[in-house]
Design a protein around this nucleic acid. Structure first.
Lengths: 144, 144
DNA sequence: TCTATTTCGGACAATTTTGTCCTGTTTTAC
DNA sequence: GTAAAACAGGACAAAATTGTCCGAAATAGA
């Protein structure tokens, strides 16, 4: 569904959001270990998220990554997915047709339309706060 | 959502099914042109579908590909997707966690569960016959 | 100021996916 | 029987994705 970079991005954002909610800053090593993801690859992804402004980074001792608490309740899964996989994901035809649309549909277009809308709705209405809340209660997990 | 090989596979199956329903056999060149897909790559995909038994191939002049009319109403999108992308697609965690399950869920597991079931249901209940029917009426298209 | 810590950014490497090409084999039509 | 048509399959090539490495820049603390 999403690229593995995107999967890691979402998990990383949840991890960082959870720390930030509790007033803590975390760093690359902690994130990578928390997710059980390759450190260097995770670094690249965090770089992208930083450039997009979804997290804030700080160099030097005691530095690391943090998320603006106000943003955590506003940033949605859709925002993160778009930042990593690009906006194409939301419009890409199920059968890969470039010209697929309501007026010139592929054979499964109408079958999948409600599903796509549902997916989009979930992504757009699920904030980081929503999903990070269960994490600290050990009700959900983010480490493979 | 699916790999591009899988997108082509589904479109190719629809194309072949549509021909077969009308008692016609088609060949690689026709399929590739019908889908506007690279011929050699399409050949590989048709090879896989043939080995899986979803279509039947025939060598020599006048040869090509055809689908058993009885099968066309039974083969589902899920069958084709599984043949090309493997069964993992149906169980792969949204966030890429290997250990994700109802009892040890990732933070979005429960949010996406209904969506996943819905997707699975659509794939399993949509037969080739269903989707190829609209094609001949020029109501849907499979060429990009 | 010096050092240790940490992110940044570019170059590079490995892997997977996508795509091509060529040779062989089977089959049909004449 | 021969030639042409068509798929089968293996080797190869290109592109995209995933992943690594290292030096530079920034920052905190001694």
């Amino acid at each position: 569904m999403f690229s593995s970079a995107c999967e890691i991005a979402i998990r990383a954002m949840i991890f960082i959001a959870d720390k930030s909610v509790h007033g803590q800053r975390t760093n690359l090593r902690e994130v990578a270990r928390g997710l059980n993801s390759p450190e260097a690859f995770t670094a690249k992804i965090l770089q992208t998220l930083t450039k997009c402004g979804w997290i804030h980074s700080r160099k030097g001792p005691g530095g690391g990554f943090e998320a603006n608490p106000k943003k955590i309740s506003k940033v949605t899964l859709a925002d993160i997915v778009e930042a990593i996989d690009g906006p194409g994901i939301f419009s890409h035809c199920v059968l890969g047709l470039e010209t697929c649309s309501d007026t010139r549909p592929c054979p499964v277009h109408h079958k999948f339309l409600p599903l796509r809308n549902n997916l989009l709705s979930i992504l757009q209405h699920t904030s980081l706060l929503d999903v990070s809340a269960t994490l600290n209660l050990q009700k959900t997990f983010i480490r493979s």
